[in-house]
Design a protein around this nucleic acid. Structure first.
Lengths: 224, 224
DNA sequence: GTCTATACCCAGATAGAC
DNA sequence: GTCTATCTGGGTATAGAC
């Protein structure tokens, strides 16, 4: 840990400060102070302040893409049950955000999305439309396999994923912890899972399927 | 229109600029330039820059509270159908946000919520928990009247309203128009209404109720 | 690679003339 | 009520010594 290079230190301190206060509210002086170097030394490692932000963002994208599924995976996934699928999806996301670093960057993205065109484009394409299309395929598939009722799969996907975005917004923007680093991702994934089960049950064809999902209802909509 | 006082001009220009670029990205110099006065004149009308933000925020709260329902209204509302209730709720919100000024301030709130404690408190209490409690009462009522299945009314309310927050976020943060002022609120309210109908249908007891809601399905989840 | 020193700009805010 | 003039502090960034 002590062997971290100065560049890494600048990188990590910047994630901390940017995600806490927002990019514009953090000065290069403050970053330097926190790292323990003089301000001008930052410019040896990064040519401009914005380069630090870009490198943080690149790091985030790289980590996100690690969990991309291949086409073969997709084909396999298309054969499983709604329940298994949910777990596959949520475990993938939990894995991506298992480090607090990634959650901090996610907060930074939520915070900066309104005035940074690059981040906004990424948010809309990769964090919103991408996943919605992903889930659309699966809802369509469940419809074809007559597991759920015929309908508009994209609307279902939006319904499901929109709630997920809301929970993420709640977590990283509204209720972000100030001091300690213990965020319990499981808490919001329980909520999202309940929501997923609710949707599946709502459009399920056989009661048997409902039963299958019911067993995962811990604090679900239709639990008393 | 030409008779607007300087103070009003400062107020309106500030809403424009703050909502477009964020509070910290707008200088008092820029406001003054846009209004057509010298920077120092602003300080005759407002003692600090932050006072402008506070006054915008107070304006927003005042407008929001105008549509508060009385206890008698609540009692009457408890007797109507899910469909009528949805329309009551959505019309109230549409009315509150019928001016572009209010939408701009809503964007400003979304933008500043992460680093302004006062705004965050307001967001959590009045824009999130308040409405969720409001809808919880109604879902509970529909359960008591055996219109929908027994379950956790709060979860249903969160499910419904969370999607609404997501659509608002999408509208005012992700897809906010740059130049012209034509935002079509009806578009997102159609989505939210579909989502509401989807939920009601999912937990509806009689098919008759489903039928009643179905007629409002324009682009609903279960429309092919 | 890190330092000192400094350039340059723009921010919020105030004093006092008119 | 609005102006001119100015203060003070902080921001990003660079040059050049060590």
């Amino acid at each position: 840990m002590k062997k971290m290079s100065t560049k890494e230190k600048i990188f990590n301190v910047s994630i901390d400060l940017f995600s806490k206060k927002g990019y514009n509210q953090v000065s290069t002086r403050e970053i330097a102070r926190e790292v323990g170097i003089k301000e001008s030394s930052i410019y040896y490692h990064y040519s401009k302040k914005e380069d630090i932000l870009d490198s943080i963002f690149d790091y985030f994208i790289e980590r996100m893409n690690q969990a991309e599924s291949s086409e073969e995976d997709m084909d396999k996934l298309l054969e499983i049950s709604p329940n298994e699928l949910y777990h596959f999806g949520s475990e993938a996301i939990k894995y991506q955000f298992s480090s607090f670093k990634m959650i901090k960057i996610l907060r930074l993205i939520f915070i900066e999305v309104y005035h940074n065109a690059k981040i906004r484009k990424f948010f809309i394409e990769e964090l919103l439309n991408g996943p919605i299309e992903f889930w659309t395929v699966f809802f369509q598939n469940f419809m074809d396999r007559k597991i759920i009722k015929k309908g508009n799969p994209r609307k279902l996907a939006e319904n499901y994923f929109g709630y997920g975005i809301f929970k993420m917004f709640e977590l990283v923007v509204l209720n972000f912890p100030k001091d300690n680093e213990d965020i319990d991702l499981n808490l919001i994934f329980d909520d999202i899972e309940n929501h997923f089960n609710f949707i599946i049950d709502a459009v399920s064809i056989s009661d048997e399927n409902i039963g299958k999902n019911k067993k995962n209802y811990i604090r679900g909509c239709m639990d008393v």
